[in-house]
Design a protein around this nucleic acid. Structure first.
Lengths: 154, 154, 154, 154
DNA sequence: TTTT
DNA sequence: TTTT
């Protein structure tokens, strides 16, 4: 039987993208996207929210676009597939990280330059990207963002 | 901005479903689904396979159906959302498991009873398939198949 | 705002594929896929079925595969986009046909040769399925199946 | 074999929603959504655009939300299924209209009231909705919007 | 950490 | 008819 592994996300970036380059000069961008569900708690009956953080990885030209046009808070549509990657933590223990390997991306902001003063956006964006996101972006739903080693391209 | 967290899987069960019941008698079924990607290894250039295992959870009536009709090897289509769940291992350490909370499921086996009654499946299947394609499939929902001129490539 | 036009279908071919070739030798295959919904009639309360027929078009290499391996009754998974095409009928009147321009296709039959060699399909299929579910499906991509505590319903 | 008929759209409304009510007081909202693809023309090699217009129908509570919060130009995410509906034109000829019966909808505008002065939005929106869209919204890719009779709920 |  |  054929198989299918498809993920579709709409959400906002929790931090600026992290972009790096392989030795063969291919760009790899990693972002964190938040999606939020609301549900009614069974016992209390009150409306609650649950947020899931997704680690999404882009390759090549799309990774460059992500690094150039997206930043913390940007709304985005992503298609991709789920992939679990194994790595060893500092104690040599096996750890697993689940990533969405993106195959398609659409920026949902009405216009990148609208919300940001165009004349200031470049330096600002660069500055934030250099700052490399916030301290503990992943604390709520997985190992910390910075602990996980980079993915290697196939 | 609205958010979306959607997963679509087609794959086979790696083991029989595990079904349990909550105190309020709601069924919860957990299965493992494998999806396989093929890709070309960059250095060797040879075709390789990578299998991803998805932990999928069903609730309520669907969970009962899963427990009743699916088993190891069954092909299945699943829709749901990704959710990371935190738990503590025996050392008290925080661990995370990623699950697909299913909202929809379709059994893809040609027929549930096929594997159970193999001696009858062939003639039955042939009969059904013939019935499936009617003489004039297009008549009900659009102009006849043959009337429409061919599409031209861009 | 970005736009998205995505269709996903699972169904059976209502007839054998129609394949033709452009002058530049590109294959174009057209099929009709049936999908069936069941619903409860509001007045009578009885369960009813409604079948929708989709005209799906493939290009290039995929079109060749469709023409070679699929036939009336074949189960298929299709991804693509909706496109309305204008044409003139014999009276010169404008007519419109809605087509799904396929970007991805997966054959869902357990095996192409099943229907062709029915006498051999059973033993073959059983053998494959057994091979499909390995002893420890979860070992490769996450913590062992049994280690993870059960999810609690909301 | 199970079947699936799933459509996912992101686009903008070409006109204000049309809302009507059944005798049982169920709301039915119809909108037109544009999606745009860009492609390279094979002969000229230049970048071209092709716009597809989708007729999307909502029922019940969602239809009310659509009528209340969306208007011409609003960005929207829609999930649903394709359904062809047969009707007779004024000459008694069979005609077919393809509709997306929506099962889910998410408003993608950063915030309904942001772009519109909140104190003026109600009257303005009501005014436009009364105006009932533009003269010939559907001319480009199907029969005119107003020619098609309303869908009847199941 | 996002967003509403 | 939308939007970029």
């Amino acid at each position: 039987m054929a198989s299918l592994n498809r993920v579709t996300l709409i959400g906002n970036l929790g931090a600026d993208p992290e972009v790096r380059y392989t030795q063969s000069r291919e760009a790899i961008a990693t972002i964190r996207i938040a999606t939020t569900e609301t549900y009614k708690d069974k016992s209390s009956g009150e409306r609650k929210e649950i947020t899931e953080w997704h680690r999404v990885v882009f390759f090549g030209r799309t990774a460059e676009v992500v690094g150039e046009y997206l930043k913390k808070g940007s709304p985005i549509y992503v298609e991709g597939r789920i992939q679990t990657r194994k790595w060893q933590d500092k104690d040599g223990q096996d750890r697993y990280v689940v990533e969405i390997l993106a195959s398609e991306m659409k920026m949902l902001g009405s216009r990148p330059s609208d919300s940001d003063a165009p004349e200031a956006s470049n330096s600002k964006r660069t500055g934030k990207r250099t700052g490399n996101g916030n301290a503990k972006p992943a604390a709520a739903s997985g190992p910390a963002f910075e602990d996980v080693p980079d993915i290697e391209p196939f």
